[in-house]
Design a protein around this nucleic acid. Structure first.
Lengths: 225, 225
DNA sequence: GCAAAAGTGTTCAGGGTACACCCATGT
DNA sequence: ACATGGGTGTACCCTGAACACTTTTGC
């Protein structure tokens, strides 16, 4: 599809790209799919596509996300518009990039049959990437890291119910630093952003953990760490 | 120019808009220009235009800024991409919006002769605005307010040399709250982001004030307030 | 029994906040 | 003389940071 761009359009066209992030195997990871055409054959890319004339840019991002992965009602935020002239060898494409947070656990992606395969990569060890997608993923990871400290958006990465240990570990992975368990719990309980939920997490070779859930799954500015 | 859009382009075209902000008469103010065509005749708008095929989006923003106001080497940051379908009645236009900070004092704008006139408006009492420019200015003001608290970007709004009183007043205007003079000075001196500069500010009916300048005019993350 | 994470309080230091008076100037 | 903002120090409180042991489970 992108091949015909430089024939059809003198001016730039608009694409959206969506960086899907989750925590998997104790790493912040991005969902990538392999390119199927030269010059990026076998390079990996984030999900994306051109916008349609009758949809907003936000809608286009949500549409591609849903069409290609089945994801809906997840944390989604506009990241940045990437508009360098040479960023797409097929033609002039300006991409408005979004990032999405999903809990890894229990999430079944419904990958579109048009996509050969997808794979999660740790954002710290990415394969060769198409276009400027390396820069894009780096920017997304930085934004996420920055926002964790002063907002509650960690909720996007956790399942409905979670333990304080899992919550703390999520912060530690993204902030890349160890946190003190007692101080962490004291702080989070004082912020009123999480509440005790019914039940415990059992089945592991240690004492069961109380479950918690988020009071609100709307973005809030809160001084967390 | 924008009139032909819906004839020529089936798909969306890309524009840039630039919100120019300064502090004038103790108000955070935006530079606006009157529209000269229906349906927005006599509405006001921020500076903007379409991008050219051979320039990046960032370059387009800087080019329009320079061409229309003569401004260069000022604080400029990408704000957000606005992409609602109906935002421009002439056709499908997605706008990548930037904001710019300038010191008001001593700044001579070289307004392009193509522009009939420009005027500063307090962002808290804006005239009727074209397109979604009300939303755009509001978003810019919010971003600025948020970033003042944790970065040093106030430097964009102040002249080369300034007094601590002027600096404090700038914060107070944008944050919309009074600050304690002694605590403010103590904090800023401890951060090493400003340094004493030669000379004093005299000529006003009170004790002369020492001048200061910024150690660095690069954006830095610093916990200021 | 052993390993592994859950759960729980106290102490200390540093930073934020509140607060009042004299100084140097222009009019 | 008077009005105006410049310039300065201290006391208190609260928050952030450091720190260790017992509990409950699965194997």
């Amino acid at each position: 599809m992108k091949k015909e761009i430089n024939k059809k359009y003198k001016f730039a066209v608009i694409a959206v790209d969506v960086v899907i992030l989750t925590i998997k195997d104790d790493k912040l990871s991005a969902l990538l799919m392999p390119m199927q055409k030269e010059p990026y054959l076998n390079y990996w890319a984030v999900l994306g596509g051109l916008i349609k004339p009758n949809e907003s840019v936000n809608e286009a991002a949500k549409r591609y996300l849903f069409e290609k992965t089945g994801l809906k009602n997840v944390y989604l935020e506009q990241l940045y518009a990437f508009g360098e002239v040479g960023r797409d060898p097929f033609g002039r494409v300006v991409s408005v990039v979004y990032f999405v947070l999903i809990p890894h656990e229990n999430f079944r992606l419904k990958i579109s049959k048009k996509i050969k395969r997808v794979k999660w990569f740790s954002v710290d060890s990415l394969p060769p990437l198409a276009y400027d997608h390396g820069q894009i993923i780096k920017t997304a990871a930085e934004r996420l890291q920055a926002k964790l400290s002063y907002t509650n958006i960690i909720y996007g990465l956790l399942p409905e119910k979670f333990t304080l240990g899992e919550l703390q570990k999520s912060y530690e992975i993204i902030l890349k630093k160890k946190l003190d368990k007692r101080n962490f719990r004291k702080k989070l309980m004082s912020l009123n952003i999480i509440k005790s939920a019914a039940g415990q997490k059992r089945g592991e070779a240690h004492r069961p953990a109380q479950l918690f859930s988020f009071v609100s799954k709307k973005p809030q500015v809160v001084e967390i760490l």
